[in-house]
């Protein structure tokens, strides 16, 4: 239990740090308003041009609310790899070795703590904007609860992948390009911009085996089209990938420690 309590404490400090800079924090809501405005305009055009009330099982309201949920998760991501890269380059990583929590676990807890207040802000802002734009009638209460559960697992998965990218700083001078590719995989095969139901069959099949759709598509789909069986399948997929990436982080951290040379100081 002790490591869990320590992680919760680290996460709480990271969350409070976010709230300390209120102006910067609230400015994130502006970005959410802009993106939702763009998506509402784009999808209104698509549905007007097609003349159909539903496309691949989604109404206009469904698709816009789906995008609120994917963007809420995406824009709550912490980019922890930037801090980790800086810690490795500056040598500050050496100080973390003395902490009672390992470096990757500390970073994952910080990442989740950073994401929590952003998540609440993005969800509230996005819901308000699209509610006023296309109406509040999407989803259901069980769908919302399923969304919250899958979103927590999604952010945990995202934090682990972020830590993995950050650990690459032990081998690479610059890890940002790796993050860009990861982010664009979320945009595309992750279903951030377009639900998997809109994909051609071959791409949907590939996407369902990859981890990316468990981060963006899964929580949003659970909200707009709640089905207990599908939610359970998506949650199981998230847990399996959490175990996979957790193991990978532990292995990479072990290899990284072997490369670490502390030059006194």
């Amino acid at each position: 239990m002790k490591p869990l309590r320590r992680c919760l404490f680290i996460g709480r400090i990271a969350a409070r740090q976010q709230l300390a800079y209120r102006g910067e924090f609230l400015m994130r809501a502006v970005a959410m308003v802009i993106f939702m405005g763009i998506f509402m305009a784009l999808w209104s055009t698509v549905y007007t041009v097609s003349g159909n009330a539903t496309e691949s099982g989604y109404t206009l309201r469904d698709i816009v609310w789906y995008l609120v949920m994917t963007e809420t998760v995406m824009m709550s991501s912490s980019r922890i790899f930037l801090d980790m890269g800086e810690a490795v380059r500056s040598g500050a990583v050496a100080y973390t070795l003395a902490r009672p929590v390992s470096f990757p676990l500390f970073q994952a807890a910080t990442s989740l703590g950073t994401s929590a207040p952003r998540f609440a802000l993005n969800l509230a802002t996005g819901a308000l904007v699209v509610g006023l734009g296309v109406g509040f009638g999407a989803g259901s209460l069980p769908g919302l609860l399923a969304f919250l559960l899958l979103a927590i697992l999604a952010l945990l998965l995202d934090a682990l992948i972020g830590v993995l990218i950050g650990l690459l700083a032990f081998w690479m001078e610059e890890t940002q390009p790796v993050f860009w590719i990861y982010q664009k995989l979320l945009f595309t095969v992750g279903g951030l911009f377009l639900p998997l139901e809109f994909f051609p069959d071959w791409l949907r099949t590939i996407s369902r085996w990859l981890p990316f759709h468990f981060i963006t598509y899964a929580p949003a789909r659970a909200f707009v089209a709640f089905a207990p069986g599908e939610v359970a399948r998506l949650a199981l997929g998230q847990v399996l990938y959490l175990a996979f990436f957790g193991t990978l982080v532990a292995l990479v951290w072990r290899a990284a420690q072997r490369r670490l040379v502390v030059q006194g100081g």
Binding site: V46, V49, S50, E55, M172, E173, E174, Q176, P177, V178, W180, I181, Q183, K184, L185, F187, T188, F193, L194, F198, F199, P200, L203
Partner: peptide, 24 residues
Amino acid sequence: LQVFGMLLNDLMLLVFWTLLFQRF
């Protein structure tokens, strides 16, 4: 790495438009 990373990043943005315009 930065130049080609960004090139790949930008290219992947076009996947969304390709899928969308295939249908509409």
